[in-house]
Design a protein around this nucleic acid. Structure first.
Lengths: 234, 234
DNA sequence: CGTTGGCTTGAATGAGGTCAACGGCGGTGG
DNA sequence: CCACCGCCGTTGACCTCATTCAAGCCAACG
């Protein structure tokens, strides 16, 4: 029995339909095609803190987030968590192993009450051949992730922690420019994990950047960027 | 004029056909389909040291290696090279930007005389919709790369250089088990870049591992693994 | 109101990067 | 065929950045 089977399926049809029809990779399909996909998928809910899948689990399904937030992380040899990415509604996961070997290399954990739409590997492959446009959507997503991941690797390989923080902050700024306020999408602890460092170092570096007058910490999750240009020169 | 247009196209039909028909992502197609793809692609050759594309170049083509060897690397903020991967015949590159933005984030450099098969973005997208099975092949490849890249990121984030070397060596061993001899697929300099460290450190760590009796350096590129289990405990 | 978990700060340690010098090897040209 | 050059790899000395360990603070929550 896999971990998802232990959970209550969501039998509400409307909710399930909403789940399927809203996800970006299916959005362009017509009513009839959506029905076909709906029939082959199911909705599953997870509580905060529950593990959706863990390293070593057989990977035979694609999970599309409908509601909530999911943390994808890996463990280093030493057992330390490395945050790989956060998933929001519309994002999907589980795909890596869908096309290759069948074991997950990462962990997926619900950060709050989360609803996901699950598609079996074999079913998905059928859809991909039948509706080639879905492949293009997934290829695009993969492409983005690959780029992000390789950029991250490059940064880890030789940038200082300070530079990584600066790059992270300025990239967040680009996303939605509420003037120069950055809302951290995760806790400082998770940020440390994501940036490949420790909470202590994050704390110190933020303090340093603030002392230099480059940023201002308005609250734990809210950072005002005072000097963008200088920040990038760090 | 992009960099590839500066080069001699390979007008030999047989060679071009060999190029197209041999690549894994097209292998399963029939004669007629191959002809269609051949017509829409072209072969281009590069000398040792030539750059196939560089960071910032418009990315509008997929490159499939037919002959030779290619280094894909990125530059860090500080201008240091980070080796991302090596391409051998049958591998492809240029795809990342094919589905998203249109600018390369990495460099591709021919390490020896190299022949590649080039497909324009728009043409490729057409093929993907027409022959959905190609998408599956590419998805599979992406999936592998993504996994490799995320594994690499995780390792960079907190493993020591020694551990990264040990993991690299044992993984190489798995590939082809000529007893316990590992043939390094690249120079130590490139290996340093790939593992996110410096040639000096690589040199020292190899010497340490040898002193501990875990490995033996038979020649520059040939490493004998003496104690696999201990190596993994480093 | 005590506990838990996130965040901060201090001090000590160490892994690995940098700089510099040198030996070896292969290619090139006289 | 030899001399020279350039690049790779190695080794030593030094130094810096960031992790680790430890302790304390604060806010949220049962």
């Amino acid at each position: 029995m896999t971990s998802i089977e232990k959970h209550n399926h969501d039998h509400s049809l409307e909710s399930h339909k909403a789940c399927v029809s809203l996800v970006p990779i299916f959005k362009h399909l017509d009513e009839e095609q959506l029905d076909e996909i709906m029939a082959a998928t199911r909705s599953v809910s997870f509580e905060k803190g529950e593990i959706i899948y863990r390293e070593g689990d057989e990977a035979d399904s694609l999970y599309i987030i409908h509601k909530g937030k999911v943390r994808i992380y890996r463990l280093t040899e030493a057992g330390k968590e490395q945050l790989v990415r956060l998933l929001n509604p519309g994002d999907f996961t589980g795909e890596t192993a869908l096309f290759t070997d069948s074991v997950h290399e990462s962990y997926a954990e619900a950060m709050m009450e989360t609803k996901v739409c699950v598609i079996q590997r074999s079913v998905l492959q059928g859809f991909l051949l039948k509706f080639p446009s879905i492949s293009l959507k997934i290829l695009q997503e993969f492409s983005n992730r690959l780029n992000t991941s390789e950029t991250q690797t490059t940064r880890f390989s030789s940038e200082t922690v300070e530079t990584r923080i600066a790059l992270f902050l300025t990239e967040q700024m680009d996303q939605k420019n509420d003037r120069n306020i950055v809302y951290l999408p995760m806790s400082k602890k998770d940020l440390a994990s994501y940036l490949g460092t420790t909470p202590e170092t994050i704390s110190r570096k933020f303090a340093e950047l603030e002392a230099k007058g480059l940023i201002r910490q308005k609250s734990t999750r809210q950072i005002e960027i005072l000097e963008v240009d200088e920040l990038l020169l760090v």
